[in-house]
């Protein structure tokens, strides 16, 4: 920790907080704020309720078919995560900086001995922790209730699913925060986040199908295009990690397994990591240059 003595009366020393201390302070504040907010409660309850619904429906349709039943449940939960987690992370990230700027809180916060990078990272860590809690509560309650009802569960699959969901959430949080530092108003940032969510969830799938038909894409091009979308990366990685197979994805999945085999984990990991790091780095660069008002 740096200590200042220059310009002070004799014997007086002032300490300057470190990066890690400030990031932790801002993160804890953001986490408390998120946990107490309505969005956290609504998303967690909604996520858990939908997860339970999916689990029961899959389990019932499998007729108590044990592990294969759980495989269906997992596939259902993957699709649920694909819808809910990106929306949750994008809107949480988009609301944070823009909302603080709009309410005049950002000027006050940045007038303290804290750097912009510390504020951004602190908010990211705090919201990331809130999202992790939300995912763990949602998926944990599904697993817990299924186990209590006597249905088959694979703890490792649930851990994989939770971990990959968290990775997806961090990527989408980065994108949301980029939208937040770019927008002047919180409503614009959140609107942009919802538009991005729609584009990633629905439009990109349609574009992929249309591209395949119209442009007669080769299988490796199709895989490359799928890897650009973090939601597709999550879907492929989840299925690969849980079932060691991508058969359900058709020719592209078979090609991926045949061509890359064990390296797929690395490829998927690098793609998701790029979605975490690149938007966050861009957000930090923009945030360091923009006026907080």
């Amino acid at each position: 920790m740096t200590t200042i003595t220059a310009g002070l009366s004799s014997g007086m020393r002032l300490r300057v907080p470190t990066l890690s201390a400030n990031v932790l302070s801002v993160a804890l504040r953001e986490l408390r704020e998120a946990v107490r907010s309505r969005w956290f409660l609504l998303y967690t309850l909604g996520f858990a309720a939908l997860g339970l619904g999916v689990s029961y429906a899959s389990s019932a349709s499998a007729g108590g078919a044990g592990l294969s039943g759980f495989g269906r449940t997992t596939a259902g939960l993957v699709n649920l995560v694909l819808l809910v987690v990106p929306l949750m992370a994008l809107t949480a990230g988009a609301g944070t900086i823009a909302s603080d700027r709009e309410r005049g809180m950002l000027v006050y916060l940045l007038s303290q001995p804290v750097s912009r990078l510390e504020v951004l990272l602190g908010k990211y860590v705090g919201l990331g922790a809130a999202l992790l809690a939300c995912i763990c509560l949602g998926l944990g309650s599904c697993a817990g209730i299924l186990a209590w009802k006597g249905d088959a569960t694979r703890p490792l699959s649930m851990v994989w699913l939770a971990g990959l969901s968290f990775g997806l959430a961090l990527g989408m949080l980065s994108v949301g925060m980029l939208a937040s530092v770019l927008a002047r108003k919180a409503s614009v940032a959140v609107g942009t986040a919802i538009f991005l969510w729609l584009a990633l969830v629905f439009v990109s799938d349609l574009a992929l199908m249309a591209g395949t038909m119209a442009l007669k894409l080769r299988i490796e091009e199709l895989l490359a295009m799928a890897l650009v979308n973090p939601l597709q990366v999550f879907k492929m990685w989840s299925l690969h990690a849980i079932d060691s197979s991508l058969d359900v994805l058709g020719p592209a999945g078979l090609y991926a397994v045949d061509e890359y085999g064990g390296r797929l984990h690395l490829i998927f990991g690098a793609c998701l990591m790029a979605w975490v790091v690149a938007p966050l780095a861009l957000a930090a660069a923009v945030f360091s240059r923009r006026a907080p008002v």
């Binding site: 310009g7 300490r15 005049g104 809180m105 001995p113 804290v114 750097s115």
Partner: peptide
């Protein structure tokens, strides 16, 4: 501020300052 350039050494410079805005904007 106290010899610290606010652009390059913003944190120590602001540590020397207590700021009161026109209206407190906080949670």
């Amino acid at each position: 501020v106290g010899g610290f350039d606010v652009r390059t050494r913003g944190k120590p410079a602001r540590r020397l300052i207590g700021y009161v805005p026109q209206e407190l904007g906080f949670y």
